[in-house]
Design a binder for these strands. Structure first.
Lengths: 236, 236
DNA sequence: ATTAGTTCTAGTCATATTGACTATAACTAG
DNA sequence: CTAGTTATAGTCAATATGACTAGAACTAAT
């Protein structure tokens, strides 16, 4: 590494570099209980700084793409995933996020359906982790994931985001399991059910989920659309 | 203006430049009704692009400061204001926000107290406008203000942000006027009052506001603190 | 075939919250 | 001293929420 003062001065005068990263959430059955739990894919750093540590997927912003397009492309390139939901999370720009240079990261967060997540690329340098057992990540990425988890919990409780973690058809109990996994507390099945049934965006279908061990539950469908980001309204 | 292809190529390869802007809200009495209304300061552009149009205060990000510090400094430099509340709004990075170069703007929004806003610098190139009568602004700044207004309304309805638009002591009717101005609808005084009284963060004082035309209302004080941004938790 | 076990589903009941409204208190202006 | 206005407290019905009960509908074991 260069440590000459000339190089330091050069770093000081160069504009802060701009990066895009994404926190990608998906549900996977827990190994032990089989219940759905939150997972996210990380990539192994192959160079300094933080070589060999796990980090959020990310990369530079190229000229021809909007922020959201950059997040979307990056997500596809590193994990092979097409997200069901993608929203800007926050711009992180602390002075000492990276030890070698000043980096401002515009971070997105994404939700992918389980079917999609199941066939995601996994390799030596890309691996899925349980969101609650990450260990030490590169840069400030632990704080970023925590913030993303907070946003997810908030949007789950107030918004209509749970359905983007599920397939097109789902049972009300599956929705409840998503809430229980993300909020980490049990919910009364009957009351939860009553709330969902009063939501106009959830549509009853004539189908039932067969093959379970007990009474077959009815399948439902989500008909609403998520709100768009301000920056993305005019994207064709 | 240069239009040679060499210059175009140069622009294409250069990294997107990074700017910080702020939407600053303050209450001022309407000229007509005297009721509080939302105002914000804009600066006149003195060069191309959008020369002579009004724009949000903003500037480049320097190396020695965090994003929030940059917003805070910029706000102080252009308007002389010290904000009571400052939070990141959104990073705007559409491809064609600026006709001459690719710019990513990280936008903050701020609230200032009326006393502060009253002694804000106003000049040939800095002027306050009613938030609902802005006209055409430079760049995508109309969309940005709209988004900021949406955020303000949301935080007002669910969070505890109204008090940052008021002084240290206030009457419950003044709080109601803030809600009515921002949400643009009338609220029942008695019911609104009941809600505020059940909020533990609002503390009754022994003082009363004297000098009004009618029964002197009791003064209250806000004791809560707003939630911090993730990027700003460790700032001393 | 019958029964036990489990989940799905509908409903009850007490409590808390909300919106519309009424009434009294306390001040100023004339 | 009275009229006008705001401040403040309270009532009442409608709605939402949390705790709970119970029957319906299926599978698996006897």
């Amino acid at each position: 590494m260069y440590t000459s003062s000339a190089n330091v001065a050069e770093r000081q005068s160069a504009p802060p570099s701009l990066a895009i990263s994404t926190v990608i959430f998906a549900l996977r059955p827990s190994e032990r209980s089989g219940r759905p739990t939150l997972w996210l894919p990380l990539v192994r750093r192959i160079r300094e700084p933080f070589k060999d540590l796990w980090a959020l997927p990310g990369g530079p912003l190229t000229h021809a793409e909007s922020l959201q397009d950059a997040a979307s492309r990056n997500l596809r390139e590193t994990t092979g995933l097409a997200p069901n939901y993608l929203e800007q999370l926050y711009a992180f720009g602390g002075l000492h996020r990276s030890p070698t240079q000043r980096v401002v990261s515009i971070v997105y967060w994404a939700l992918v359906q389980p079917t999609e997540a199941a066939l995601a690329d996994e390799s030596e340098n890309v691996r899925w982790f349980r969101a609650d057992r990450l260990g030490d990540l590169a840069f400030d990425h632990n704080a970023i994931v925590d913030y993303a988890l907070g946003r997810l919990r908030n949007k789950l409780a107030y918004g209509s985001v749970a359905y983007h973690l599920l397939g097109e058809y789902f049972t009300l109990a599956q929705v409840r399991e998503v809430y229980e996994a993300v909020l980490d507390r049990e919910l009364d099945p009957a009351n939860f059910r009553r709330q969902l049934k009063s939501t106009p965006e959830i549509e009853e279908t004539g189908e039932y989920l067969q093959g379970g061990k007990h009474r077959p539950p009815r399948l439902y469908r989500f008909t609403g659309r998520p709100g768009l980001d301000p920056d993305n309204r005019s994207t064709p």
